[in-house]
Design a protein around this nucleic acid. Structure first.
Lengths: 249, 249
DNA sequence: CGCAGTTTTGATTCATCTCAATTTGTGTGG
DNA sequence: CCACACAAATTGAGATGAATCAAAACTGCG
C-alpha cells in the first residue's frame, strides 16, 4: 500500500514535469478535445517541454525557425506582426487553452512574435510529430483541421471589425469577446482584469490609444461598464450587444 | 494502333468530364503541389465533380452545409461575410488555383458566401475524403496544413492593412497583390482587368467606393498607374511599393 | 518616496465618409 | 443595330469621427 502510494506520487511528479494532457484541466478547450483517454496518452508522449515565459518575454520572434506550436497552459499572450517600416500590429490575444504559432506552419519560420503579458506557461507541441500522430488518430486530425479553420474564421471576424465598424463598436465587440472567453474558462464574464495596455488594445482594433481611453470613458458615462485602469466591470451586456448590432446609421 | 488511339481519346474525354488533377495546368499552384504522379492520381479519384458557376451566381452561401472545399479552375470569385444588421464585407478574392471554403472546416457550415465575379469553373473536393487521403499521403497532409496556415498568414496581412494603413497604402498593396498573383499565373503583372467593382474593392479594403475611385484617380495623376474603368496598367511598380513602405509619418 | 510608464482629458487637424450631381459603360429588347 | 434603362464610376462640397499634439493625473515599482 505504502509502496503503491509512493509510486503514484513519483509518477505524478514526473508527469507534472513532463506535462500531461491527460491531467490537464484545459483538455476540453485545447488540442485533446474529443480524444479517447488512450489517444490523449499518445498525445502526452509528444509534449516534452513545458516552458515558462515571464511577463514581457518573447515565446518566439517573427523569423524564428518554426518547429512547434504552443498551447497556453496559464497566463496571457499577445501576438504581433512587424512591418518593414517599423509599424507593428497586434494580431491577437491568447489565453489558457488557446494555441500559438499556427501561422508558422505555412513556412519554416514564424511570421509573428508572441509575447507574454503576464507570467505564463506553455506546452510546446513539436509540429512534425503532431502531424505524424494525427495521421494515426483521425479524431486528432479532424480537430487540428478545425482549430486551423477556426483561426481563419476568427480572423475574418477581426477583418469585419476593422473594415466596417466604428470605434465604439470595435471596443464593445472586443469586451464581449474577452468576456465570453473568460466565462468559458470559469472566470467571471462581467468582471475581469485587462492584461494589455490601451495601446495594445488600440493596435489590435486599429485605433489610437487615446481613442480607446476616450471610448472606455464614454462607455462608463453611459453606464455600460465601469472602468478603473485595467479593471473592467460590465454593467450592461445587452447594451454592448446592441451597440454592435445597430445598423451603421 | 487505331484501337489504341481511340482508347486514348475515350480516356481523355472521360478525364475531362471527371476532371483530373494530373492533367491540370494548375497543379503547381493548387492542392497537388509536391505530390508524386502516383499520389496525384489518387487525388484525382477524389474529385468527382467539376462545377460551372455563372457570373453573379453563388458557389455556396453562408450557412450551407459544409461538405467540400473548392479549387478554382478558371474564373474569379469573391467571398463575403454578412453581419446580422445587413452590413457585409468582402473577405477575399480568389483566382485560378486558389481554394475556397476553408472557413467551413471549423464547423459543419460555411461561414461566408462565395460568388463568381465572372463565369467560372471549380473542382469540388469532398473534405472528409481529403482528410482520409491525407492520412495516407504525408506530403498531401503537410500541404493541406500549409494551405490552411497560409490562409491565416494572408488574413493577418489584411488585418495589418485594415488596421494601420491609409487609403492610398491599402489600395497600393491591393494592386501589387493582384499584380503578383496574375504574374504567378502567367498573365501580365502590369496590365490587367479588375473583375470586381469599386464597391467590392472598398468593402475588402474597409473604404467607401468613392474613396477607392478618388484614390485611383490620384494614382493616375501621379503617374503610378493608368486606369480606365476596370482596366488597370501599372506604370511604376516601385512607386507603389514606396507608398506602402514609407513610414506613417 | 520619487520616477517612469500608463491613462485620462482637452483642443485642433485631417482623412475619409456622406450626400449629391454628372458621366460613362453595359446589357436588353424593340 | 440602335436606343433606352440601369449599373458603375467619377468628381465636388461639406460633415464627421478619429488622429494628433499637448498637458495633467494616476499607478505601481524599485
Amino acid at each position: 500500500m505504502s509502496s503503491g502510494t509512493s509510486a503514484k506520487v513519483l509518477s505524478l511528479s514526473l508527469n507534472s514535469l513532463k506535462v500531461a494532457c491527460s491531467q490537464c484541466n484545459l483538455r476540453e478547450l485545447c488540442l485533446p478535445f474529443g480524444l479517447s483517454s488512450h489517444e490523449v496518452h499518445r498525445l502526452d508522449s509528444l509534449i516534452e517541454t513545458r516552458r515558462k515565459v515571464k511577463r514581457g518575454q518573447h515565446l518566439y520572434h517573427a523569423g524564428d525557425v518554426f518547429e512547434a506550436i504552443y498551447a497556453v497552459k496559464t497566463g496571457f499572450f499577445k501576438t504581433d506582426v512587424l512591418l518593414e517600416d517599423g509599424r507593428d500590429q497586434v494580431t491577437g490575444f491568447q489565453m489558457a487553452g488557446e494555441l500559438l504559432g499556427l501561422d508558422g506552419i505555412s513556412g519554416d519560420a514564424h511570421t509573428c512574435s508572441a509575447v507574454a503579458l503576464e507570467d505564463s506557461e506553455v506546452c510546446a507541441i513539436p509540429f512534425a510529430e503532431l502531424e505524424n500522430l494525427s495521421s494515426d488518430i483521425p479524431t486528432l486530425q479532424r480537430h487540428l483541421h478545425r482549430v486551423l479553420s477556426r483561426e481563419i474564421v476568427k480572423d475574418h471576424g477581426v477583418m469585419m471589425l476593422l473594415g466596417s465598424m466604428r470605434a465604439e463598436e470595435r471596443l464593445a465587440a472586443f469586451l464581449l469577446n474577452l468576456s465570453q472567453r473568460f466565462l468559458a474558462r470559469g472566470y467571471s464574464a462581467s468582471e475581469f482584469h485587462l492584461r494589455m495596455t490601451r495601446e495594445e488594445i488600440g493596435s489590435y482594433l486599429g485605433l489610437k490609444l487615446e481613442t480607446v481611453s476616450r471610448t472606455f470613458s464614454h462607455f462608463q458615462d453611459s453606464g455600460l461598464i465601469s472602468v478603473q485602469q485595467k479593471h473592467i466591470r460590465i454593467m450592461n451586456t445587452e447594451g454592448l450587444h446592441q451597440l454592435i448590432k445597430q445598423k451603421n446609421c
